[in-house]
Design a protein around this nucleic acid. Sequence first.
DNA 1: CCGTCATTTCAATGAGTAGTGAAATAAATT
DNA 2: AATTTATTTCACTACTCATTGAAATGACGG
Lengths: 110, 110
Amino acid sequence: MDDVAVRRLAALAQGTRVKIFKALMRAGPDGLAAGVLAERLEVAPNTLSAHLSVLSEADLVSARREGRMRIYAVELEAVSQLLSFLVDDCCQGNPEVCAPIAARSAMSGC
Amino acid sequence: MDDVAVRRLAALAQGTRVKIFKALMRAGPDGLAAGVLAERLEVAPNTLSAHLSVLSEADLVSARREGRMRIYAVELEAVSQLLSFLVDDCCQGNPEVCAPIAARSAMSGC
DNA sequence: CCGTCATTTCAATGAGTAGTGAAATAAATT
DNA sequence: AATTTATTTCACTACTCATTGAAATGACGG
């Protein structure tokens, strides 16, 4: 559990990858083709592929084939698990301490 | 904005640091002394200090002095910002897509 | 089947980072 | 002031990781 979270955080802890992640978050379940991402983010295809592989091994994104392109999409379930991991058991079980902060974060814009 | 988030993710993307972070999350605003953390997590004091410094520069934790010990506590506001960053603008502005997932995550256990 | 498009794999290089022992700082106690 | 306690800073080593060019794989159209 703990290990998975670190792997996911590491996958996101990089400038290019976090941009990829956010682009895929915006795209939602439909996802985006690797080539589209490469062009949109101005990243070399091979570099992008390496980053997608990291995100993929962390299960933060999944890939499917469509014709000759490969479509990547965010794994919302994994994102949800990651957010939960970061905040669960917080404030010694006193919700009122951080409830006001929790209120305006966490997928509220989603 | 983007840069801050990556810095914070990088700070959390490490086994020892994520344990420190979770311990401090559990402790809440009261925080924990560096020494207590070192003993509880079985980390050498100098190693711990380096990790706390990383978390601190990412503004995920703050430090205060109390007697001769230094007390570290989580910065809930920063945590909140980080969670928001990860999920905002998601699913092309179609809340219904990820709302069910959002429901059971994000400071819900808090 | 042959060429082309989309993407990945490989090998190599340079940059950043975790951990350690030893020394330094800082505050309280005697 | 000297000593002990709590923590940080320093210098160093080993390791991991991002990026790049070149070659390889896989799928489609002629």
